[in-house]
Computed example of a mutant assay.
Amino acid sequence: MKRRSFIKKASATSLACAFPTIIPYRNSIEFSTDELIGKADIDLYGEGINLRKEAHDAYVEMKKAAYSDGFNIKMVSSFRDFYRQQGIWERKYLRFTEDDGMSPLDAIDKIIEYSTIPGTSRHHWATDIDIIDGNVIVTGDVLVPEKFEAGGPFEGFKKWLDENSEKFGFYLVYTDQPKRRGFKYEPWHYSYAPISIPMLTAYRKINVVKMLQNEDFYGCEHFTTGFLKSYIQDNILDINPVLL
């Protein structure tokens, strides 16, 4: 989850401030509900990349550009289907409730600091990526904000992404804007906007509350209508506004 400005400061001029960021995307594409919630079989491209064709091609070009500047973009996560997300959710739910002794509601609140409810992940769309610099040797969890900040091992890589990722259509999703709600800042999570924007538009037409109330996984019995409505507004929609 990340909160940042999407207009590059280095190239900001009075003209840049006068015009909004415009992302060309194909709004004629139709997506099935199963496709949007991660239950459809879709074509994925690239060994170890696993993105839709257009996103894959843009990722490869971005990787080449980064490499020429001394960075080796390494994919940590891309496409995840519903059932893989369910596995992530349930492992965390059991760990927090059984090992850590949290109440179900506290466990759910803890999970959704960084992890999505199955059926609501942007990774279901094969447009979003979690990436690091493979040239840097680090210990422990690589996907922590501190490692992308000043003094962290990925500081230079994050600066490169700030200056270049949008040239290839990839935008930070969960920014570090102080007033943003929902998922916490994720400086590693980028979305291929030309496809993810129309996918989010289509996703917003789904009755997510009804969909989740018909699912069966650990913890879902504690999802109230009020909780789910807040989750949709805060975690799904309170993102980088360029991606809405």
Rank of each mutant, 00 (worst) to 15 (best):
T175P: 08
I137F: 10
E215M: 14
R84A: 11
I37D: 02
S230Q: 03
E155K: 07
V173N: 00
Y67T: 07
N235Q: 03
L243E: 02
N135E: 12
I22T: 14
Q213W: 02
R84V: 06
K74G: 04
K167D: 15
Y83N: 14
F154K: 04
E186I: 00
K2D: 02
V142Q: 15
T201R: 02
S14V: 14
Y45G: 04
E149H: 05
I236K: 04
F6Y: 12
D176W: 02
V242A: 14
F183G: 00
S5V: 05
D238V: 00
T201V: 00
E163H: 03
S32C: 08
K159I: 08
Y185V: 05
V208P: 01
K64T: 03
T175D: 15
S77Q: 13
R4A: 10
N72S: 12
A18I: 08
F71A: 03
C17V: 09
S68G: 04
E166P: 00
K8N: 14
F168M: 05
G169E: 08
A55K: 01
E113Y: 07
E186F: 05
E155S: 08
L161T: 00
E98C: 06
N235C: 07
R26L: 12
D130H: 10
F183I: 05
V76M: 14
D43F: 04
I236V: 14
D57N: 15
G156L: 09
N240L: 01
P145K: 05
L237I: 00
I29Q: 15
Q177M: 09
V138R: 12
N27F: 09
L51Q: 11
K64M: 06
G119M: 03
P20H: 11
K63N: 10
Q213S: 05
F227M: 08
F183A: 01
P194G: 09
S77T: 11
K9R: 10
T120C: 13
R26C: 10
I29W: 01
F168L: 06
K158Q: 15
V60I: 14
F96M: 13
Y192H: 12
N207A: 11
F31N: 04
F157L: 09
L36F: 07
W188D: 13
R52W: 01
N214E: 15
F148G: 00
S103K: 10
I195W: 06
V242T: 14
Q86D: 04
R4N: 10
R95P: 01
H189T: 02
F82A: 02
I29M: 14
T13D: 12
K92C: 04
I73P: 13
I7M: 12
V136Q: 15
T116M: 05
K9W: 06
W89V: 04
K167S: 08
C17E: 12
S103D: 14
